[in-house]
């Protein structure tokens, strides 16, 4: 079964995605959602079915469930990785922290836990597709849920869309993101961005932070990514996009 349609307003070819998941109702809904976003999905309910599709046709990316009726998703992932470098996004309901590491170690490009936000699935899918096309080293990219910071290209993207930041703001964002989960005082932030040319007049860190928030937060009034700590400074959240 194949479903989905190209979005008329985008000129590019629809990317072909193979989704291997035994929950066909979920797969159907995901297919509808991603179809609306310009992907073409092919659905397979079993590992055998999925491998059959892969023999016949080529895909741009694979969405793979960890638990399949006829195989373990990790084994399948390892098998696929041995023969092809098509990007793989693992879906799982296990939620054990180890799974994440294992999933990535065996060659999956990304990982998403059920239940997930379709928006996040789409963002991650876009990210792994883009990474495939670009030569940017994966280590240059910092990912925090829907937010992606490409240190090589000096670009920040939310849901795959570029967000504009000045070069000082980007340096500030990187200083924060590289130390996610740690409180940084304003002085520490000034130190970390000392090399950057301050194009502004005499703007405090706080002003720049609020500009960055405007660019990368869903609601700058209720920040979830860059948090203020009264009297202590700022902290960049490690675990973002939690429902």
């Amino acid at each position: 079964m194949t479903s989905g349609a190209t979005r008329p307003d985008t000129g590019r070819m629809a990317e072909r995605i193979l989704m291997i998941d035994d929950d066909d109702r979920l797969a159907g809904m995901v297919s509808d959602y991603l179809g609306g976003a310009g992907f073409r999905l092919t659905l397979a309910g079993t590992a055998r079915d999925g491998e059959g599709w892969l023999k016949r046709e080529s895909f741009d990316a694979i969405i793979l469930d960890l638990m399949l009726p006829d195989a373990d998703g990790l084994d399948l992932c390892r098998r696929l990785r041995a023969t092809s470098d098509v990007p793989i996004l693992m879906l799982t309901a296990r939620g054990e922290p180890m799974d994440r590491v294992v999933g990535l170690e065996i060659g999956a490009d990304d990982y998403l836990a059920k239940p997930f936000e379709p928006r996040e699935l789409q963002a991650r899918l876009r990210a792994i597709l883009r990474r495939k096309g670009s030569t940017a080293a994966a280590s240059d990219i910092l990912r925090f849920g829907r937010l992606e910071i490409d240190r090589g290209a000096r670009v920040a993207r939310l849901d795959g869309e570029e967000r504009s930041l000045t070069s000082y703001q980007f340096a500030l964002l990187i200083a924060l993101a590289e130390r996610a989960g740690r409180v940084l005082s304003r002085d520490a932030l000034m130190d970390l961005t000392k090399g950057e040319k301050l194009e502004a007049f005499d703007r405090s860190v706080d002003v720049h932070i609020s500009r960055i928030r405007a660019a990368i937060e869903d609601d700058p009034k209720k920040p979830r990514r860059i948090l203020t700590l009264r009297g202590a400074g700022y902290v960049f959240a490690r675990d973002q996009d939690r429902s």
Partner: peptide, 9 residues
């Protein structure tokens, strides 16, 4: 979580 994921989507 499977049905939960469906409800979420």
């Amino acid at each position: 979580r499977t049905p939960l994921a469906r409800i979420g989507v």
